[in-house]
């Protein structure tokens, strides 16, 4: 049989595709069928089970902001995931409150997903409500005016376009807010 494997191109094609599809199907098609939480939007009304809240879809303005986020490649340097690491929950927490760990149900409406792979800048999964609009305006105009040593590019053409700027900030303020994690609604606008 393996003698044939050495000499038959058709055998090779079939066998390599079969092997590929075993792993391919089991790791891409099967997991969402096994773990239903990938497709169920976050909703929790019971404080005993952790932060309460509901995942809502972005409105038109927030969606436009998200499109700008994708267009400018923000996701090459900013991840959007609080991992199951103590350092992540502490570092991206706020006033002593730990940031809740990101769960699949918070991202159900995301497309394209913006989880990211590289943290050249800080994680943005819970950045919603962390800074106010004025801070963002100054920061996008030139990040080094606010954060000395930052290497983030300046985005003057976004600040100079009020509609785009408002949309982008509106999107950023939604990040991580499906879970109402800060006590007494302490969010910046």
């Amino acid at each position: 049989m393996l003698r044939k494997a050495d000499t038959s191109a058709v055998w090779a094609i079939v066998a390599s595709l079969v092997l590929f599809f075993i792993g391919g199907l089991l790791t891409t098609v099967v997991p969402p069928m096994v773990d239903k939480s990938w497709g169920r939007p976050f909703a929790n009304a019971d404080p005993a089970k952790g932060p309460t809240g509901t995942l809502v879809r972005l409105n038109a303005q927030q969606q436009q902001g998200r499109d700008i986020y994708v267009r400018e490649g923000c996701w090459y340097c900013h991840t959007q995931q609080i991992r199951t690491l103590l350092a992540d929950t502490k570092r991206y927490g706020w006033k002593g409150v730990d940031a809740p760990i990101s769960t699949p149900d918070e991202f159900v409406y995301d497309t394209p997903h913006m989880f990211g792979t590289k943290r050249t800048g800080p994680d943005l999964a819970r950045v919603g409500g962390r800074y106010d609009t004025q801070w963002h305006r100054t920061h996008f105009r030139n990040p080094r005016d606010l954060v000395k040593g930052s290497i983030m590019p300046a985005f003057p053409w976004i600040v100079g376009n009020p509609q785009e700027f408002t949309a982008l900030v509106a999107y950023m303020q939604t990040l991580g807010r499906a879970k109402d994690w800060r006590p007494s609604n302490d969010y910046e606008r």
Binding site: L19, G23, P31, W38, Q81, R83, E106, F115
Partner: peptide, 27 residues
């Protein structure tokens, strides 16, 4: 043949500790 079989399974290791099922991370 070992490459043909094992490579395709490993995509989820890009999201270790991330918001993806632990068992898939283990696989």
């Amino acid at each position: 043949w070992s490459l043909a079989f094992v490579y395709v399974w490993t995509g989820a290791h890009h999201m270790l500790h991330g918001p993806i099922s632990q068992w898939l991370q283990t696989i």
